[in-house]
């Protein structure tokens, strides 16, 4: 992951632990931003605009780790979470995992374990970022379509033949073909299958 643009957020109330984990992550080539409490993290405005993960202590005074996880979900911040805890019990970890945590590590944690979990979380984050970038691109492409082209595309992905589309739209089959060609070009779809998948992913509809 070295060299990639990414960020590890760390929230732990214990200064020694925070300092040590920060050092370890930095020594492993991560960019680290550490916070002493959940509140402090929320107020920093970190939102995962770049691939990032959150290394989060479960037990903290005030808002604890699980509270923060819940809060992030409520704010729709997509940030993979790795929990660390000094006294993890099974119900607590199940709850965390169900809520989407990447991993649940017990303190003290070995570097290999920790870094593997961080890598996994960052990979997930990058995957999500890549996916979102693709969707954004597809949506951007779809936005370039004219209303006529949208009508054509909606019918193409619905599996109708050119002839049927021409009938539907009260135009000639030849005209439909021209629109269809433009759609394929604008959506940068190499095949009908690609166009159909792109439409599915962006939830394409006739009306924008």
């Amino acid at each position: 992951m070295n060299g990639d643009q990414h960020q590890v957020f760390l929230v732990d109330d214990d200064e020694s632990v925070r300092q040590a984990l920060t050092r370890l992550l930095r020594a492993s080539g991560h960019r680290v931003q550490a916070f002493a409490s959940a509140r402090e993290f929320l107020e920093s405005g970190a939102d995962g605009s770049i691939p990032a993960c959150l290394l989060l202590d479960v037990s903290m005074p005030g808002l604890d780790g699980l509270d923060l996880q819940r809060e992030l979900q409520a704010r729709d911040v997509a940030l993979p979470v790795v929990f660390i805890t000094g006294h993890g019990d099974i119900p607590m970890s199940v709850k965390a995992m169900k809520a989407g945590a990447v991993n649940f590590l017990a303190k003290p944690v070995r570097d290999s374990e920790l870094l593997a979990a961080i890598d996994e979380a960052l990979a997930r984050s990058m995957r999500e970022h890549a996916e979102r970038r693709e969707l954004d691109e597809l949506r951007r492409r779809a936005d370039t379509l004219t209303p006529r082209e949208r009508e054509v595309m909606a019918r193409v992905v619905a599996g109708r033949l050119n002839k049927q589309i021409a009938d539907d739209l009260g135009t000639s089959e030849k005209t439909v073909k021209v629109h269809r060609g433009r759609v394929m070009a604008k959506m940068k779809a190499g095949s009908l299958a690609q166009l159909v998948r792109a439409a599915e992913r962006i939830g394409f509809t006739e009306k924008p």
Partner: peptide, 24 residues
């Protein structure tokens, strides 16, 4: 439970610090 937590914190810090030192 309390003592485990209180011991775990410095132990965690020490382990992570040591492993960071190895890397540095």
């Amino acid at each position: 439970a309390s003592l485990a937590h209180e011991l775990n914190q410095p132990l965690t810090a020490m382990l992570s610090n040591a492993q960071a030192a190895q890397r540095f």
